[in-house]
């Protein structure tokens, strides 16, 4: 009894490497679909993670409506909008990168991925300015909340404004952490893609990290209006 080694077709052009289908799969299709289903299940856990936070946000929003409306106005709407546009752009460049990979365009894929990393870094830089603008005035989450004299008057007569900022920093913080992880994941794609590992015959890693990137965008699509626009 012998097993032939299964390989997907290796495209010409570039320094593409052949992809061997792992021995426990019967075909390249089965391998691809298994990887993809597993990844979708991981994305489901991401939905659960943020879903819980959103539900918590809703409850406290109802409880302290006045506080949430007033505190939401303290967030920088312009920077928030800018970040939304940056993240949507990165989602588009990522989709284009996956598309290039599926058509075995190595150079094109790497260029789109670099653009995605650039946007992601831009997002983090804007986030840095937003956070420090709050930290400089003692606006910290939870029990660290100690606004200085410029910010304290805003919170006069509001019940528990620190709760709003706990939600703000927790939700955008966990989201920002995902962006950071995404940057490293995409850099890995660029590194391995340069070695010719990803092409039409093996696009799964690019495809899956693309999905991850889109869900990070998806979460921001809901975070942005909730925190910045209509708290």
């Amino acid at each position: 009894m012998s097993h032939a080694v299964l390989e997907t077709p290796t495209p010409s052009g570039g320094n593409f490497r052949p992809h061997k289908v792992a021995h426990h799969f019967t075909s390249a299709v089965q391998e691809f679909q298994s990887l993809k289903l597993a990844f979708w299940l991981f994305l489901v856990t991401e939905v659960m993670l943020f879903g819980g936070l959103f539900a918590g946000y809703y409850i406290y929003h109802e409880q302290y409506l006045e506080t949430f409306v007033a505190c939401g106005k303290l967030l920088n709407r312009e920077l928030g909008s800018l970040n939304t546009i940056i993240l949507l752009t990165s989602s588009w460049t990522m989709a284009m990168g996956v598309r290039a990979c599926q058509r075995s365009k190595q150079r094109e894929m790497i260029n789109w991925l670099w653009l995605t990393v650039l946007c992601a870094c831009g997002f983090m830089v804007v986030k840095y300015f937003e956070y420090t603008a709050k930290f400089d005035h003692g606006v910290f989450p939870g029990s660290f909340f100690a606004p200085d004299e410029t910010y304290a008057p805003f919170f006069e007569g509001l019940l528990h404004p620190n709760i709003f900022f706990s939600f703000y920093f927790t939700m955008t913080g966990i989201h920002g952490f995902h962006v950071l992880l995404g940057i490293f994941a995409i850099l890995w794609l660029i590194w391995q893609g340069g070695k010719g590992r990803f092409h039409a015959g093996f696009s799964a890693p690019v495809d899956l990290i693309g999905l991850y990137w889109h869900i990070v965008d998806l979460i921001w699509i809901f975070l942005f209006p909730l925190l910045y626009l209509v708290p």
Binding site: A4, V5, L6, E7, T8, S27, A28, V29, F32, R103
Partner: peptide, 17 residues
């Protein structure tokens, strides 16, 4: 046997682009 590389090309993977 596998080491000596009996390689089969699996052409079935087609993704929508």
């Amino acid at each position: 046997h596998a080491e000596h590389g009996e390689v089969q090309i699996d052409e079935s993977l087609k993704t929508h682009v």
